[in-house]
Simulated assay, not measured.
Amino acid sequence: MSSPDEQEPLMKVGIIGLGNMGEQIAAAVLRAGIETRVYDVRPEAVAKLVDQGATGAASVRELAEAVDAVGVVVLNEQQVGEVAEEVAAAERRPGTLVVHSTVTPFYVKGLQNRLAEAGVDVVDAPVAGGVARARTGDLTVMVGGDDAVVAGLSPVFQAIGRDIFHVGPAGAGTAVKLAVNFMTIAGYALEIEAMEMVRAYGLTEDALSTVLTTSSADSRAVRRWGFHDRLRRQAPPGTEPAHLVMRKDVTSFAAAGGQAGLVLPLAAVTARTLLDTIGRRDRYLDDLGDVPPVPRCAACTQELIPPFREAGVHPECAA
């Protein structure tokens, strides 16, 4: 048996970007017993993780020089690029940059080529499941990257995710994430219009939701109608407005299709009309005034439509 001095050193991980998702991802990595350093432009966000046992960094470069892998959970490609430049310029560079942000496959591949010159591997590992699942380390993680590099990051992915899919080379995880986001966001826009139409004929949203659960239009989104409304309208101060993030993601999906030689007309229409659609939704909700909060599922904590309120749980959550 080897002595402790002969054992391989434990991985050191840095997380950059401590917003809604980044904070929870960093906390999950920390709970897994992985040495974690954190950085954000907001000192108070860093301090919150330091209180939980993380080590704070004063800059991206300082963090990069102290860890083996850097996880990036920032808003867009510009911010990812700024982080990547600092990582590449670090005197002691980490072995891997893990992009959790929602960007495009084309961007990830370009980033991979640029950082290869600095000896840094790039893995894209966007996540799905929202803040609630991030808080419990139960995210869906869609990973793209070299097999050996991804295998080496397994402790990190297991810390943050319940369902982990290594779907292909760098860029593949982002392609899947954009498809997931497009279906989610476009579905939300579709539901808003469906609700508008039935209300115009004197019906309630609860009435339509109840019927939908017995039809081929049933879905997880239908069963938690009101969830996206709440997330948008109760977002913490200082965070990027959810409707702008939604438009960015749909626009990125359409752009990714174009970069692959595809024409995606539904994505183009959704991107062009999304802000108006959500604006109408917000005006309707404002006109409702004070209404009781929608009951939530005891298991997943998301909204319950009428057929499931007596039981207090979604059928799929009770299974």
Rank of each mutant, 00 (worst) to 15 (best):
L190A: 14
G173Q: 08
S216D: 02
I185M: 07
I164T: 09
L190R: 13
A151M: 07
G173D: 05
A217Y: 10
M183H: 04
A125L: 06
F157T: 07
A207D: 06
L178C: 13
Q112D: 09
T102K: 03
G168I: 02
R135H: 09
A179M: 14
I164E: 00
I192M: 11
N113R: 15
F182H: 13
A134D: 01
K177A: 04
V150S: 05
E196N: 06
P126V: 06
V150M: 01
A200S: 13
A172S: 15
V143A: 04
V122N: 03
D146T: 04
G152M: 12
F165I: 06
A125P: 05
M197I: 14
R199V: 08
A116V: 04
A186N: 08
A200P: 00
A132Y: 03
S209K: 05
D124H: 02
Y107N: 01
N113I: 05
L208R: 06
A134K: 00
A118T: 03
V108A: 10
P169M: 14
G187N: 14
A148H: 06
T213E: 15
T204H: 00
A148P: 02
V141Y: 08
T184Y: 02
E193W: 11
G173V: 09
T213F: 10
F182W: 08
R135Q: 15
G130N: 11
E193G: 09
S209M: 06
R114S: 14
L212I: 10
V127M: 05
V99I: 14
A186H: 10
L139V: 11
L111Q: 00
Y201T: 05
G110A: 03
N113D: 15
S101C: 11
F106E: 04
A194L: 12
I164Y: 02
P105M: 07
L208C: 02
P105E: 12
G152F: 08
G129L: 10
A159V: 12
M195V: 03
A172N: 08
D138C: 15
V131C: 06
R135S: 13
S101G: 09
T184D: 02
